[in-house]
Amino acid sequence: MIFDKNIVKAEFINRPNRFEAYVYINNFQVKVHVPNTGRCREILIPGTTVLLREGNSPTRKTKYDLIAGYKGERLINIDSQIPNKVVYEALKLKKISYFKKYVKIEKEKIFENSRFDFELWDKSNRQCYLEVKGVTFEKNGVTMFPDAPTERGRKHLLELVKAKKAGLDAAVLFLIQMSNVKYFTPYDKMDKEFGENLRYAKQNNVEIFAYDCDVGEHFITLRDEVKVKL
C-alpha cells in the first residue's frame, strides 16, 4: 500500500506516555500522536530519525502520527493500524499461498467472545477466522511478539482454538513490519503465557504464519513468508 498522506521526517526526543511523543521538526519541538501501545523502546530512542504522517482532521489534538523509525539502516513501521491494511491488500491480491482458496473476505467479525480481524469463506462456504498481529520488535535479525504483555492477544489465541474445535478453520498471521529478518518467535521473556498459548494453538491445528514487509518512507507491502520457531 502507498501512503496517501504527507510524510515528514523528524528527530525523536521522548515519549512521555503511550500515546504521545515529542520530536524535532526543523529544530522546532512538536508533540505527535503514537499509534502503537507497545513499548517500541529499541526503536524510539532520542536522536532517532522517525517518520510522521500528517493528518488533516480539524478534530485532531496533534497534527502528526509517528508511524515509523530507523533502527540503524532498517526502517521499521510501528503504526498499529497498518498490519490489517497490508494483510487485507495481500488477501485480495492472493499473495498469501494458504489463503488463496478463500473467495470472500469480511473484516472484524465476532466469534464467541472475540472480535477477529478477518472472517474468510472458501467456495464451499467453509469459514476461517484470521487474526493479525503486528510485529515491531527485532534483535539481531530475530523478530518477536509481543513487546509488551497482552491479555487480549492471549485471549485471541484461545478463541482461535475454540473456532478450530467447532469445526472451522483458524489462523494467526504475524506481520513483521520490516524486511530482511531471520525468523519469528514468541517473546517468552515479555509474556510467557502468550508463548504458551501460541504453542497450544499450534498443537490444536491453528495455522500460524509470519510474513515480513517491504517498507519504504511512502509505502509498505507484504513481502515473504518468514520461518516461525516455537
Rank of each mutant, 00 (worst) to 15 (best):
A148P: 00
E159S: 01
F118D: 10
G69V: 07
P83Y: 09
E20W: 12
K63S: 06
V228H: 14
P149M: 11
K165M: 11
M178D: 13
N6E: 13
N27F: 08
A10N: 03
P146K: 13
L157R: 00
K63P: 02
K94Y: 12
V8W: 02
I13F: 08
I78M: 12
N56S: 01
N180F: 05
R199E: 14
L130H: 07
Y102G: 06
A163C: 07
S57W: 06
A148W: 07
V86N: 05
G134E: 08
R41V: 04
V50P: 05
I67H: 11
M190G: 01
E20L: 12
T37F: 05
Y129C: 02
V161R: 04
Y88T: 07
D147N: 14
G167N: 07
E193I: 03
R199Q: 03
D214P: 02
F209T: 03
I13R: 04
T59F: 11
N113M: 03
N113G: 02
A201P: 04
D4I: 12
K109I: 01
G38S: 14
R115N: 06
Y200V: 00
D224G: 04
P186F: 10
Y102S: 12
A166S: 15
D79M: 13
A163R: 06
E217C: 02
G134A: 03
L222T: 10
N205P: 01
L157A: 02
R15Y: 02
D212M: 09
V86H: 14
N197Q: 11
V103E: 14
A148E: 12
E108R: 09
E106Q: 13
E119Q: 13
V226N: 13
R74P: 04
A163I: 03
T48K: 12
F116I: 06
K182I: 07
E73Q: 15
T150W: 00
I208L: 03
K165D: 07
H33G: 06
K71A: 14
Y200I: 01
E73C: 15
A166G: 07
K192D: 05
Q127H: 09
S124E: 14
L52M: 02
S80C: 05
G153I: 00
Y200D: 02
A21G: 11
K100D: 04
G216K: 06
R223H: 15
I208H: 01
F19W: 03
L158T: 00
K155V: 00
D147K: 11
P83W: 12
V181D: 02
